[in-house]
């Protein structure tokens, strides 16, 4: 099948590649760019494991063709650490609050939470639960993911994190 040349910005760097028109963005990221942190849990837009940040929106990258992302500005989990290489507030929150187990949903969750906190810097538990409802986790039961996002929100806002009482 004829291939198309695409360029886009991923984690701040210009990248390019030759793709078939039908190549999914997630496959372009994982296979052409060899950034395997973005995962595939369903390829039917249900699970959110493939979530990336694209032009300031959370996008399920299994639901978009690479050619549609031409010219886009994308952030994947590989671009989420602090510039000095330390864990960002969200990454740290997931670790501190035990917001992950197998880790398969985690990159998508973190990317979604990243956008959620940009949209709403101080979300309530209900807003968090609603805001990440496009991302499925089979391991954690979500409770600690909610705490992880609250932890990160507190850290970003410079306030002390008060763990919700049981």
């Amino acid at each position: 099948m004829a291939k198309t040349h695409v360029t886009m910005k991923v984690n701040g760097a210009e990248v390019e590649g030759l793709v078939e028109p039908r190549t999914l963005l997630v496959h372009f990221i994982r296979e052409n760019l060899q950034m395997t942190g973005t995962h595939i849990g369903c390829d039917t837009t249900h699970c959110g494991a493939c979530t990336v940040d694209l032009n300031g929106m959370s996008v399920k990258s299994c639901t978009m063709f690479a050619v549609q992302a031409a010219g886009a500005d994308i952030t994947t989990i590989e671009g989420m650490a602090n510039p000095d290489g330390t864990l960002s507030a969200l990454q740290e929150g997931f670790r501190m609050m035990h917001g992950l187990q197998c880790g398969f949903c985690t990159p998508g969750m973190i990317l979604r939470a990243h956008r959620l906190l940009k949209e709403n810097a101080n979300p309530t538990e209900e807003e968090i639960r609603f805001g990440i409802a496009g991302n499925l986790c089979r391991c954690t039961g979500y409770q600690n993911i909610v705490k992880a996002i609250q932890y990160a929100a507190a850290k970003i806002n410079g306030v002390e994190f008060q763990e919700a009482a049981e």
């Binding site: 395997t36 942190g37 995962h39 590989e78 740290e92 997931f94 670790r95 992950l100 880790g103 985690t106």
Partner: peptide
């Protein structure tokens, strides 16, 4: 968890 340092950075190594 020891595992989380790699999992939170997309550095897990899964079969795919």
């Amino acid at each position: 968890r020891v595992e989380d340092v790699r999992f939170t950075q997309g550095k897990g190594n899964y079969v795919d």
